[in-house]
Structures are given as C-alpha cells and as structure tokens.
Write a protein that binds this DNA or RNA. Sequence first.
DNA 1: ACGCATATATCATAAGCCTTGATGAATACT
DNA 2: AGTATTCATCAAGGCTTATGATATATGCGT
Lengths: 290, 290
Amino acid sequence: MRAPTLDLTLLRTLVAISDTGSVTAAAKRLDYTQSTVSMQLQRLEAQLTLTLHEREGRRIRFTSEGERLLSHARRLLALNDEAWSDMQARQVTGDLTLGIPEDYASLLPSVFAYFHQLYPSVGLRVICGTSALLVEQVKAKELDLALVTRQRNSPGGDVIRREPLVWAVGVNQQPLLSDPLPLALYSPGADVFREVAEQALQAAGRSWRVAYTSQSMAGLAPIVTAGLAVVVVTRSMLTPSLRPLDESSGLPALPMIELALHRAPHRPSEPARRLGELIREQLAAPEQAL
Amino acid sequence: MRAPTLDLTLLRTLVAISDTGSVTAAAKRLDYTQSTVSMQLQRLEAQLTLTLHEREGRRIRFTSEGERLLSHARRLLALNDEAWSDMQARQVTGDLTLGIPEDYASLLPSVFAYFHQLYPSVGLRVICGTSALLVEQVKAKELDLALVTRQRNSPGGDVIRREPLVWAVGVNQQPLLSDPLPLALYSPGADVFREVAEQALQAAGRSWRVAYTSQSMAGLAPIVTAGLAVVVVTRSMLTPSLRPLDESSGLPALPMIELALHRAPHRPSEPARRLGELIREQLAAPEQAL
DNA sequence: ACGCATATATCATAAGCCTTGATGAATACT
DNA sequence: AGTATTCATCAAGGCTTATGATATATGCGT
C-alpha cells in the first residue's frame, strides 16, 4: 500500500466550507465552481472512507470526525502556508539600503535579524544621517527606505507610529529645575526635539539654555546621568540610566512625535516592499521596544 | 491567484530521496518508477520556481533551499501521518474483551485511557481472573486477549516483558528471617510465584510456611506492612508501603517471570490487534510503570 | 582506455483524476 | 404559490501524472 497522504487542497476546501458555512460560499472564496467544491468534499470522504458532514435541512453540520479532521487540517495548512511563504521569501533577492537616524540604529537590531532570517538573500545596508538629509536621499533614490522622525521641513512618508516625548534626567539625580533650564540636545531628531522643547517651554513661560549638544545620545549620556542637564527623548529610548519626569516636575507636557517611513518614489523593489512591511508590523505595536 | 498549496506526495518523495540518497532507491522505497520520482523532483522545483538539488558527479546534493524545504517537509509529513492515522483509528469499531489478573487491573489505566483516546468507538471490557483461567477463556474465544503471567500449566502467548521478582516486607519492618520463613501469597500469579518461591527456598535449604493467602495484594497489604510475613511481588508492583529485600537479606535470588499476551485463536479482530499492539508498545519499556 | 553496470533524464503514451457547466431536487424566503 | 438559493449528480473534456522505453552520463573494474 502506498503511503497514505492527505491532499492539502481538499483540506483547504474543507476549512473553507467550515469557515463560510456553505459549499457555494466556499467555492466563491476559493475561486472554484460550486460543483467542484461539492465533489471535493465527497472525494475527501471517499479517500478516508468516512462521513465528515451531515445536513440538517439546508444547513451543513460536521460530524465529530469532520470536526476532528478540521482541526488537523488547520494545523496542517498553517504549516503549509508557513513553509510556502518561507520558500518564496528565499527567492527575494537584491540589495537594499535603509536610512535611519543614528540613534535608531541600536534600536532596530531585532528587526534586522528577523529580516535576514526571512530574506537571507537580500543584502541590507543601513546608513545613518539626520532625518532631513535622509529624506532628501530617498527622494534622490539614493536610499530605498528611510525611517525618520517627521518634521516640518521633511513631511510626507507613512506614519508608522506615534510616540510620546518625555523629559528625562539621570536616574539618581533630582529634577534639575534651575532657571534657565539647562538642556542637552542631540541630533537625530534634534531639530524636532529642540523645536518641540523650546515651544513647550516658551508656552509655559520658562527660560532655558542649551547646555550641551552632541551627535548622538551616547555623547550626552555622561552629562545627563551626571545631572548637569535635562534631555528630551522618546519614551522608547529611555535607558536604565535615565529617569523620566512626569508633570509633577513642573515641566510642560510635550507633544508626540511621529515616526515616518519614506519610500523611494515609484515602484519599490521587492526587498524594499518586504522590509517596509516588516518595519510597519514590528513597530506598529506601541508596547514593543522601538 | 489560487492559494499556494504544497503537494505532500512530492514532499514525501523529496524526503525519500534525501533519506536514501538516490532517486532510484527512493523510487523503490515508495513503490514508484524511477522516472516518476525523477519527474516529481522536477515538478516540485518547478512549482516553487526554485532549485532544490544539484549533482556532483553521481551523488546528489541538496541546495540550502532544498535542505530547508526538507525540514518543512518532515514536519508536514509527520503531522500528515498523525492526522491520517488518527482518522483511520476512529474507524476502528467493535467490542473487545481483555482478561487480566486482578492485580494488574490497577496498573493498566494509562494504557486504557490512551486506547480510548485513539479508538473512541471501541467498547473495551476488562475481566479479571487467574492466569490459568484466563488462558482457557482465550482459547474458548470468550476473551479476545489476556495478559497473564506465563506459567507451566499455561504456556504460549507472546512474551511482552520479563520482570524480576523480589522479596518484600513492610517498609518500616526489619527483614523477618525466622525459620520457617512466613510467606504471604496471593493469587494472580499465585501458582507461579509460589512455585518459584518454594523452589528458590528449597534450593537454598530454607524452610518456610504459608502464613497468609489472599485473592489479591490488597488483601495481604495489612499483613505484610505489619511485618508478619514476607511476600513475593514483581518489581513494578512495589508500592511505597513495601520494601524490597536485596541479597544481603540472606534470601535466595528469584528468577524472572514473563508477562505473556494471549490472543484468541485465528484472525484477531481489528480492535484486538490494536490493543495488543498498544500493550506491547506501552509495556515493552522496562522502566515504565507496569 | 575500454566496457560494463548503475543512475538519471527525457519522451510519448495512456490512464485517470479533476474541473467544468448543466440539470434537477430540496429548502428557505416573500 | 412562486421565487431564489443551495446543493448533489452527471457527462464531457482537459489536464495532470505515472509508466515503460530509450538515451545519456557516471563510476568502477579490467
């Protein structure tokens, strides 16, 4: 006897019937003729020498064997689909350049790792720069994608995620509320962060001074943890050495910033599409680390 | 586009090629023609638009994609086979009577539970009796199966498992080595146990007396745990209230007994075959509880 | 180097399975 | 009642797939 092998096509039909509750609807969904689906169901029963369904009036009802096969079928199909898309993914090849502000680089490694697992044949290059510059490069097609903080001078792109900004100081420091308020600024969203901070302070009637600036958060870290300045960061970029300040600190509330994904104009390459999808999926959930 | 569905038949062929290392061998194993297997492999590659194998000289080598698909295939096929045999099992129906010595009854519940899970449509009845009687009933087709301790007056059957016999006393009792040695005997394998014990004692030059007898171990439990007698049990039937005696106790070593499965003569019913298989599988491992 | 044995790919053919479209019966809805 | 769905059945056609034979390649032994 040849090895007993289920026909996944028939199982898919079975599931469709169960999902839609009718043969005709299943046929529509699967792009088959109604008679095809009807016969497929019979074929399945014949192959198993088993009754999977009964009818009560017009409505279809699955027997306990049918239900049991359904649960097997769903598992089997899930595995099938996973296998299939995995094999397809391995055919996606090409090169791809993504631009991100420097400080995001250290925050996306899980996405990159996952992407490389899914699409091992894609050469991914990551380039850092300021948001404004990156957006220009995308427009010039020097980059396929850029994930930036949205700002006045570089609008557009698709908003991936909104994120609250917070005031922060060193974890062991008292809120440093001298007047003028000493600010530490760094560059990735520097223009946005600075603008936002200054507007908020001005509206609250506070004075301030720019105490330190740096290209990246890393450069500011010693200053801030030492308690010499207050910094503005997104909530997801808080580190254990930073302590966020709530409204009790007397500092004005900050608005949200928007993370936007820019795509090179006109027909993105397949790898770019996929990475874009992945970034959207992975960053959509606000709880997950950026 | 219609849903992408893998053909499990082709995957099975792929696995066979990988296992056997050659197309021809795979063909033999699957009972296909060599040309069929060759084309199946090509078909699979065509469907996925993917190269799965290369040849170096005569030997076949799978590409990394091939290897990856193989691992998917194995999982998929494992699920398939499980689903298939589950569906087949549900078609096994009928009634079935198994005979066992009373004291084994409490030791097989996991087997019965598993059996009922696999073959829910089979009505299983269990009957208790002495080994000798059960064997007679199997011969008379009053029972489908009987699991008994093999003994001189009821030979035959298939040996499922060999098991050591041990001397035991109450867990808190000193080895009771008075002369004559007080024995507690119970019935399921009573004749065997008694015979074995007496032979061993005689060979060792020890005298003994039968202090207590009962139909089951349950009846003897109070006597033995009270330290009034020594009992002979199989190692797997030791309970927390029994303490086995090793050779340092001075009692002679005991031989092994054999658990044998008797089947009704001529063509066993399908349910009987299955239960027999299951018992063999479940009891074969000596470490598992009887 | 040659030939034999084995393994594999290719091809035409035939079988058989699967989809299709049509038809009729049964059931709900108006 | 009449109408509209839904479904099972059927014959027909198409397409897929297994087969057996054949051609080609590879490896091994002489």
